[in-house]
Design a protein around this nucleic acid. Structure first.
Length: 634
DNA sequence: GTGGATGAG
DNA sequence: CGCTCATCCAC
């Protein structure tokens, strides 16, 4: 029901939009810590165009004009711009899309199946056996992010907002550039630092690849991109307001943004779109003014016209239930409509916190651009089961598929932060459409996270949640969804250098150092020698046989090659493999044990460690990633 | 610790 | 009821 009978402001004025032309003084220009109150604040949002599709195009080296979509089973999850011309959209079915575009290239997202060490791109993966992996996109995303870090000027704040977006706070480098370009601004006049700056005298030369969101409705060519621009048309009856220093600041940021986007485009092959404005919200909104491969600037003077017609449910966090509730409550759909609702009214209906709605529709956003830790705190691998699980014994299969993905991702993340450790692992299942159950447990304290370890932990949870791993007794309700996840993935507080310090701490070359090998890690010399005949080197310590499972564990090929050859290195690697294998048994013992049972003894005191405790390194030392991973990492 | 809600893309 | 993921909150 519409309650806004008393309008506080006239709908036709811009008076709802506060502070569009703030006074900027010499003091503002000199201050370094104004934060969100800085009248010269400049924020950008840059996102990759149809990112998943872009990744596949780069991977496959396809022509930029080739219509391409990324599929997931029968659905389309990403549509590149050439294929959008055919009216293909995100949730279309592959079959329908192909009907619309003969020439359409359809790439299925990478998938895993049980036993695969890595996800791969298969033409026709089976949803009954495979699980999709978004890994490629995460990796490419971090490449893009790193490229931005490299190519943006010093002093920016960079916040990764999602897999394909980042916010950039240009305020600092822009102010520095402003003072370089206009040195007279550095010196306050006799009237003091609170004197307003003289207006800019020279016209702005806007970056040639930058769009300006028009200030006057008559100049709007949004629906007619090929049409004449406001600046060339010259028939506007409305005057443009004078240039402000904030406009100049925006133009400097536009130059900086363009340079960085160009690097990403030329070095990595990803086209991006950016929006630049006075805060995060406006930057984000402006990024979609023109896409793809473009950037746009929203001057303060353009805010009212840009915001008023906007359907407010397009605003972040208003796209869901809250937005719906607001729309229903006031029977409105655009920002302009909503402006008539007073702050009091909002707060009466939607609570104190709804002040942010009141502010956001007026273009006010105090949120800061803040660098975030590169790693997410949780990692999940989940799948809807096209063929539901009907017996407990089917669990280990899916657990293993999920475990493979999580193991890969965790170890990946550890390349950057070697001390990352998950606090808990959890398994959740869903039966029917709403019932979900979840069990969690401490993540096992093993030195190397392998698929076996994660799967063993997952199996244990499955057993608690569903039933014995070997049971063929039909479940009362089929399981339609499985999700294995890690939580509280954070770096331990010590030993930040990880493997690097370990390697550099060794004063002598590894081959010359004298070390004692644990008797437990001694090689069983009575066993037959390896069959790796291709190496000409003596291979007397390249494997061991596990007492418990009688399995033969052999050094990987990387360590069999001449380049990696050093007896000590192989001995250490074998020791690590043995410890890792024992860790696995330990994890398995745990998983077989009734929950309230006594903990099993660890196979040896060195083979398992507490992630947060410092651990003395022993032995080892080598170069190259392929080898480093066989050594104790913490 | 568990279950649920919300939201993005 | 796409599917996959992340975060937050009540209890």
């Amino acid at each position: 029901m519409w309650k806004g009978k008393e309008r506080a402001t006239t709908p036709d004025s811009d008076s709802e939009f506060l502070d569009l032309n703030p006074i900027i003084t010499y003091r503002h220009l000199q201050s370094h810590a104004l934060g969100v109150k800085d009248p010269l604040r400049v924020i950008a949002l840059c996102d990759s165009d149809a990112f998943y599709a872009g990744c596949e195009m780069v991977r496959l080296g396809v022509d930029p004009e080739q219509p391409l979509v990324v599929s997931q089973w029968d659905s389309i999850i990403a549509v590149n711009y050439p294929s959008r011309k055919f009216g293909i959209t995100r949730m279309d079915k592959v079959k329908d899309a192909q009907k619309r575009c003969q020439n359409l290239m359809v790439v299925h997202v990478a998938t895993y199946k049980e036993g695969d060490a890595e996800p791969g791109h298969w033409e026709n993966p089976n949803t009954k056996t495979h699980k999709v992996s978004l890994d490629l996109y995460r990796r490419e995303s971090s490449k893009v992010h790193n490229m931005f870090k490299e190519s943006l000027p010093a002093g920016v704040e960079l916040e990764k907002a999602s897999i394909d977006e980042c916010f950039i706070d240009f305020t600092r480098p822009v102010r520095e550039e402003l003072l370089r370009r206009y040195p007279h601004l550095a010196q306050a006049p006799p009237t003091g630092t609170d004197t307003p700056l003289p207006p800019p005298s020279t016209p702005i030369i806007w970056n040639a690849n930058t769009n300006l969101v028009p200030i006057n409705p008559k100049d709007d060519v949004t629906d007619n991109p090929g049409g004449p621009s406001a600046s060339t048309r010259g028939d506007s009856e409305l005057e443009e307001p004078p240039i402000t220093w904030h406009d100049v600041a925006l133009s400097i940021a536009a130059d900086m943004m363009e340079r960085a986007r160009d690097q990403v485009r030329t070095k990595l092959g990803y086209s991006t779109s950016a929006g630049i404005g006075r805060n995060k919200f406006l930057a984000k909104l402006t990024a979609s003014y023109r896409k793809p491969n473009s950037q746009s600037v929203l001057r303060n003077a353009a805010i009212p016209h840009y915001l008023r017609p906007l359907p407010f449910q397009k605003i972040r966090f208003l796209g869901g239930k809250l937005g719906n509730a607001v729309a229903k409550e006031y029977e409105v759909s655009t920002v302009g409509d909503l402006l008539a609702v007073s702050l009091d009214e909002f707060q009466k209906t939607f609570g104190e916190d709804s002040i942010w709605i009141w502010e956001i529709i007026r273009g006010i956003d105090r949120s800061e651009v803040k660098e975030k830790p590169p790693n997410t705190k949780s990692m999940a691998a989940s799948k809807n089961l096209a063929t539901p699980v009907t017996m407990p014994c089917e669990g280990p299969h899916w657990v293993r598929v999920m475990a493979a993905e999580l193991t890969l991702r965790l170890n990946d993340a550890r390349e950057l932060s070697p001390n990352l450790w998950p606090r808990t692992i959890s398994l959740s299942t869903r039966q029917g459409w709403s019932v979900t159950q979840r069990k969690q447990a401490p993540f096992p304290f093993v030195r190397n996270v392998t698929i076996d370890v994660v799967a063993a932990a997952g199996d244990k949870l499955w057993k608690e949640l569903v039933g014995p791993l070997n049971s063929t007794k039909p479940l009362s309700t089929k399981i339609t969804h499985v999700c294995l996840s890690l939580h509280g993935v954070e770096a331990g507080e010590v030993n930040q250098q990880g493997i690097e310090s370990f390697l550099s701490k060794t004063p002598n070359s590894p081959s010359k150092r004298k070390r004692k090998v644990d008797s437990d890690n001694e090689v069983d010399e009575t066993m037959p020698t390896s069959s790796h005949g291709e190496s000409e080197l003596k291979l007397d310590i390249d494997y061991f046989v596990c007492d418990r499972c009688k399995k033969q564990i052999t050094l990987p090929k990387e360590l069999m090659t001449a380049s990696a050859l050093d007896e000590d290195i192989r001995r250490d690697a074998l020791g690590s493999l043995r410890a890792e294998h024992q860790d696995f048994h330990f994890a398995q013992d745990l998983s077989r044990m009734p929950s309230d049972d006594e903990r099993p003894r660890r196979p040896n005191s060195e083979s398992t460690i507490h992630p947060k405790k410092k651990r003395k390194h022993k032995g080892g030392g080598a170069e190259g990633e392929g080898i480093a991973r066989f050594f104790t990492k913490r």
